[in-house]
Nucleic acid binder design. Sequence first.
DNA 1: TGCAATCCGGACCTTGATGGTCCGAATTGC
DNA 2: GCAATTCGGACCATCAAGGTCCGGATTGCA
Lengths: 152, 152
Amino acid sequence: MLRLSKLTDYAVVVLTRLDDATDGGVLTAPGLAGATGLAEPTVAKVLKILAHAGLVEGRRGALGGYRLTRPLADMPLIDVITAMDGPIALTACVDNSFGVCESESTCPVRGRWDPVNEAIRRALSGISIADLAGPPAVVPHPEPASPVFVAG
Amino acid sequence: MLRLSKLTDYAVVVLTRLDDATDGGVLTAPGLAGATGLAEPTVAKVLKILAHAGLVEGRRGALGGYRLTRPLADMPLIDVITAMDGPIALTACVDNSFGVCESESTCPVRGRWDPVNEAIRRALSGISIADLAGPPAVVPHPEPASPVFVAG
DNA sequence: TGCAATCCGGACCTTGATGGTCCGAATTGC
DNA sequence: GCAATTCGGACCATCAAGGTCCGGATTGCA
Ligand code: SF4
Ligand code: SF4
């Protein structure tokens, strides 16, 4: 259903909670688990992946924990999605991938999905995590469609 | 990876092939399978789902087959995705769904995904199947981001 | 110096959805 | 009446995602 993975969803929740203590302090994985209501191993896994992508920073040892590397306003949503779910790729044939699709030779839409991917990437790049956690942002219907393709 | 299902991809392929004979004629499922290089049962399944959604029309009996109900230019991509993969729903908490998420009570981003869904829906509504099958449509980078949220 | 707390990395298994296949029933043209 | 074709549903296999667990490394404290 064009649904992103649960881990990505949890990542956003954890990131917003992690914003509660950004002033030098760190939060532990069990602490975040308790704050978010998620299972501890799951939160730990999410934090590990986020740390691997550089979105959060982990400090080991006693009094260790996780800390944001950037304010949430400077963290676009696409970065989180890319970190958790991998790059945006609606179909198997992206960029220059071969051999993944059985009918790549006779397919008339071979490589035509790239603009669609670009459109979604652009839509997701304009949204930051702060927008998802901030005040009840209103959607003002800015423009009807902003067409991506030029009519041939 | 924010990837839509293969069936949706195949649906687009079948639809573009189905456009080859729209002038009253119909195409059979095995014929389309041969033209697309996909397995016959898979094509049949795709056509059944598309027929159920009203995107194609099936005629039974001898000399039966499938036919497009609309030109591809009037068939936005989101209709095909909705027909195959169901409605666009990035997370479990869409609109007014309860009980699906375990941490729906303590989640700070509860319901905040709806604008994101809207953004993607809008991006996908501006693209038709004809754009995917037509000439090598150029992407002109119309606007940088077209922000969905208003800065609070 | 020893100990406890915490992150780190990987491997493992379980589950759910998806993809793919098949068969019987209904319908239409000859 | 017969053959051809779609229609509808059920069925099973496969795969990736979700979730869990353990050992090792690092840091602060007594
Ligand atoms: S080659 Fe065609 S069928 Fe294969 S993944 Fe690309 S668009 Fe889909
Ligand atoms: S309530 Fe929160 S955690 Fe649950 S699906 Fe919605 S955004 Fe995700």
